[in-house]
């Protein structure tokens, strides 16, 4: 896989390395509340009483650097997906500032692609047509075909171009989705539990693939996960959230060389135990 990638990527991604300065995210004093609608409708007064608002994100201050792969961990329901959706521009009901490359964000954009938790490939389009969505603007048909093929090859789906999503396995669907996201040539890639629902081996392979893709393309990637091992193996940095309302409990740079191995890198293993403890599992198994 590795050398094939290098060969393909040298051809196609030179222009992307010039984009390295993009994909810088600053989150300042971010607060987010959900309103409990059930309680609200029972209450007659117009003003929503304070106790009916459920704080989800509590004063989050974070910075994601260009080309950084950051894994966000936290107990389930703590608001990590919510944070991702806010940064991606899908949720505007928050207070505080989210700056992407110095600009306050305004809605979803093809510069920041979101890979959804459940497959969001269009089931009525083939793999090729799905990947093509990100390259619609290209005029030169030949060049476009070449690009499509390039991205399909990156995720190792050559030969499945004409397959519909329902004809692919779960792992292949995720890869196709990754190809579609990369084809847009975004500055930032958001992934919300990208490996959930995959079997163990597919999970491992998909994880490796994402790490490879990140090393070669070098765009900013924000990955929300509940899998501590995923975060430790993949991330340049990990951020651990507390339970709701989410606060940043820990932000740690991971200076471990890849490929990472818990047995050969005792410090990594220590960190793993520490995070397990932090998230409420006293003995890392």
């Amino acid at each position: 896989m590795g050398h094939i990638l290098i060969k393909d990527l040298n051809k196609g991604f030179i222009e992307q390395s010039k984009k390295q300065s993009m994909g810088h995210v600053i989150i300042k004093n971010l607060n987010k509340e959900f309103i409990d609608r059930r309680k609200k409708s029972r209450c007659r007064s117009d003003a929503v009483p304070k106790h009916n608002r459920i704080p989800v994100l509590d004063n989050i201050n974070l910075e994601f650097l260009n080309g950084e792969m950051v894994c966000i961990l936290g107990p389930s329901g703590c608001g990590k997906s919510t944070l991702l959706r806010i940064v991606a521009g899908f949720d505007n009901a928050f207070s505080g500032n989210v700056l992407i490359d110095g600009k306050a964000h305004s809605g979803p954009s093809s510069d920041h692609i979101f890979v959804f938790q459940h497959s969001s490939l269009f089931p009525w389009m083939t793999v090729k047509e799905n990947v093509e969505l990100g390259l619609r603007a290209m005029k030169d048909q030949e060049e476009k075909e070449e690009k499509i093929q390039e991205y399909i090859d990156i995720v190792d789906l050559g030969g499945f171009e004409m397959h519909y999503p329902h004809q692919l396995s779960g792992g292949m669907q995720r890869r196709a989705e990754l190809a579609r996201a990369l084809a847009v040539n975004p500055d930032i890639l958001f992934m919300d539990e990208p490996f959930s629902g995959l079997d163990f081996l597919t999970h491992m392979r998909a994880r490796e693939e994402v790490v490879n893709v990140h090393q070669f393309i070098g765009i900013t990637m924000l990955i929300v996960t509940h899998d501590i091992d995923d975060a430790l193996v993949m991330g340049d940095r990990i951020i651990v959230f507390s339970s709701r309302p989410a606060r940043v409990k820990m932000a740690r740079k991971l200076d471990f060389p890849r490929p990472r191995d818990f047995e050969k890198q005792p410090e990594l293993n220590e960190l793993r135990s520490e995070i397990f403890l932090m998230l409420g599992v006293p003995h890392a198994v």
Binding site: A88, F90, P108, S109, S120, F122
Partner: peptide, 20 residues
């Protein structure tokens, strides 16, 4: 989710109708 993908990929109104 398909409409969110559409927003993410900068679909025009026309494309939302024809492609989704």
């Amino acid at each position: 989710v398909f409409f969110q993908v559409a927003a993410n990929f900068n679909f025009s109104r026309f494309e939302v109708v024809t492609k989704i």
